[in-house]
Simulated scan of single mutants.
Amino acid sequence: MIPAEIMEQFKPGLVTSLSPLIRRITAPNASPMTGPGTNTYLVGHKEVAVIDPGMDDPEHIQTIVEACDGNLKWILVTHTHPDHSPGSQSLQALTGAPIYAHRLELQTVRDENFRCDHYLDEGDQIHCDEFTLTCLHTPGHALNHLCYFLEEEKLLLAGDMVMDGATVVIMPPDGGMTDYLTQIKRLKEMNIEALAPAHGRIMRPSKTILQEILDHRQARENMVLDALKQINKPTTIPDIVEIVYQDVPKHLHKMAGNTVYAILLKLKDDNTVSGEEKEGIWTLIHSSERHSDKND
């Protein structure tokens, strides 16, 4: 959890300068899932790119418009979850700026009214005299997730790939643990000095933060395997959650079940468990059985 004194930095309507090129405005949607709220980032001054307009709140959108001072050129979306993209339509209506996002559409939780003018994908760039943003397609949290790397500051506008003070929810089918871990490993190998998450404070040093994420995810995977061994029979996700997430309040267990499901799907890919549906039965495949399957 982010301390109360830090939350003061994220008051709705506050325009905070984070670096020579980056400003932050936080949407008024603080919650256990969004931390202090969704961060809208403004990149540049003479020409401005807005990343994640957030929720469609009139006061929040007006604050963005005023901060851009007539110089908004690009509305960029990291992904189309309802706390990130709905404000893009109102922002466009007020400024005429085009909307950019990845072409893939989410199947479950999504901004149902989202539409964009231009698609972005891996390696595409937003460029002007002040800055260059390079797009990275980073599925894992969401199939259509993009990060934007600010070349001049070696800063990654990371969307929901990382979250200050909490772990990112991975919710299949739009999210996948294997994809997420692959992308975190990839980001760790890049020359990134700092991470600007969609929820919370700037995070650095990036390599340390990203390694901590990998370590945490591996620990959770090990806990799921230990729970399956402890139960020692075909079981369900709620039963696994009860063991693995003893340190998490009960009201968050349903959301934790999404993460366990994502872990189980990864373990299934690894031929370590068998199962299919989130509400179905999951079984640990013992090493002797895995060896037998390979011989077959």
Rank of each mutant, 00 (worst) to 15 (best):
I6D: 11
M7N: 11
E8K: 15
P12N: 07
T16V: 13
L18T: 00
L21I: 02
A27L: 03
S31D: 10
T34R: 01
T40D: 01
V43D: 01
H60G: 05
Q62R: 15
I64G: 00
N71Q: 10
N71D: 07
L72E: 00
W74S: 04
W74E: 04
H81I: 13
D83N: 14
S85E: 12
Q89W: 03
L94I: 08
T95H: 08
A101N: 07
R103V: 06
T108Y: 13
V109M: 12
F114S: 00
Y119A: 09
L120R: 00
E130F: 05
L133Y: 02
T138W: 08
H141C: 14
H145F: 12
E152I: 05
A158Y: 04
V168T: 15
V169S: 05
T182M: 08
Q183W: 08
K188D: 01
N191E: 11
I192F: 03
E193C: 06
E193V: 03
A194I: 02
R201P: 00
I209F: 13
D215A: 13
D215T: 15
R220D: 02
R220V: 15
V224I: 14
D226Q: 15
V241E: 02
P249S: 11
K250Y: 11
M255I: 12
L267P: 10
N271C: 10
G280K: 12
L284D: 04
S287T: 15
E289W: 12
S292V: 05
D293Q: 12
